[in-house]
Amino acid sequence: MKPGQRRKVVVGNWKMHTTAAEATQLAQGVVDGVGNEDGVSVILCPPFPYLALVGAILKRSRITLGAQNMYPEKKGAFTGEVSPTMLLDVGCKYVILGHSERRHKMGESDAFINQKVRFALASGLDVILCVGETLEQRKANQTEAMLDRQLNSGLADVPVADLPRISIAYEPVWAIGNADHHATPQQAEDAHAILRGRFSKLFGKEAAEAVTIQYGGSVEPDNAAAFLSRNGVDGALVGGASLKADELLAIVRAGINEGRVEMQPT
């Protein structure tokens, strides 16, 4: 499979932002802006309280609903947690797991993230698995080792039949919301190549060529095309820029344009 045959994906991760009114306005703005365009897969991941609200707006649109996290149980005495059953019930198709903020601020381990991945897939949710290194790890030349470890751990014991329902998001932790450190498109391309190579060793070349690997290091309208044009960069996991409809739509348009270029015959 050629890189151009992998569909571009843009995921808006709203994190802990928006009120009900803001979520409504933002979701409607994105729906209106995307319209009938199907050149890019667009996924919105609002906070838990607004999933049903946003999901209702996304119905009959080309945009899919995703969640930012979940707990690996169907139900039970887990105060403050949300199950995949609940996410499916409000219309979610995707869930983000292993996000750098969950790893580094909430202390989630590789083993716990793997438990979530396997449970999400078994429950019927598609998974966006986040991996990435810190600034200290990059300075110590540990980028490849960290990506290797997180991918190996995150996908341990995942059934081969479920691989088409998994995508990978590369998050250089040191470049997220950091004005002093920015990843270059070349650094993103290099990291994606590492991940695809490791995926190939784990599951074979065909699976590696098919897996979507998106970039998640402070993607904005002014740099989206530079990242999305790189070989092996199949989309973007967008944080801050996803909170403004016009900015997210600009990134979507960049993905559409790059997707069309890749699909042109050579």
Rank of each mutant, 00 (worst) to 15 (best):
M1R: 12
M1A: 15
P3D: 08
Q5T: 09
K8H: 14
K8I: 12
G12K: 02
N13R: 05
M16R: 11
A20M: 12
A20S: 14
A23G: 15
A23D: 10
T24I: 09
T24Y: 10
A27R: 00
A27S: 05
G29H: 01
V30D: 00
V31W: 00
D32V: 08
V34M: 02
N36E: 14
E37I: 07
D38K: 10
S41R: 13
V42G: 04
I43A: 11
C45L: 06
F48W: 13
L53D: 14
V54G: 09
L58R: 09
K59E: 15
G66Q: 06
K74C: 07
F78L: 11
F78S: 10
F78G: 09
T79D: 04
T79Q: 04
S83K: 08
S83C: 08
T85R: 09
M86A: 11
L87Q: 03
V90T: 03
G91F: 00
C92E: 00
C92L: 00
K93H: 11
K93P: 05
I96V: 15
H104I: 13
H104L: 15
M106G: 06
G107W: 03
E108M: 08
S109K: 12
D110I: 11
A111L: 11
A111F: 06
Q115L: 13
F119L: 03
A120D: 06
A120R: 02
A120I: 05
L121C: 05
S123Y: 03
S123W: 03
G124V: 12
L125W: 06
L129S: 00
V131K: 06
T134W: 06
T134F: 05
L135A: 07
K139A: 12
A140L: 11
N141W: 04
N141D: 14
N141M: 07
M146K: 13
Q150S: 04
L151R: 04
N152T: 15
N152L: 10
N152H: 12
S153M: 13
L155I: 08
A156T: 04
A156L: 03
A161I: 09
A161Q: 15
L163G: 13
R165N: 15
A169N: 01
A169V: 03
E171W: 12
W174D: 03
W174E: 05
N178D: 15
H181S: 12
H181R: 11
H182W: 08
A183K: 09
Q186W: 07
A188F: 06
A193L: 09
I194P: 01
L195E: 00
G197H: 05
G197W: 05
G197L: 07
R198A: 01
S200K: 14
K201E: 14
L202M: 02
F203I: 03
G204W: 06
G204P: 05
K205Y: 10
A208P: 00
E209Y: 09
E209G: 14
G216V: 01
G217F: 13
S218N: 08
D222C: 09
A224I: 01
A224Q: 02
A225R: 04
A226E: 14
N231C: 12
D234L: 07
D234F: 04
L237I: 09
V238G: 01
V238Q: 02
G239R: 00
G240W: 09
S242C: 11
A245V: 03
A245Q: 02
D246E: 15
A254N: 06
A254Q: 05
A254M: 06
I256H: 10
N257F: 05
N257S: 14
N257D: 15
E258G: 01
E258M: 02
G259E: 04
G259F: 00
T266R: 13
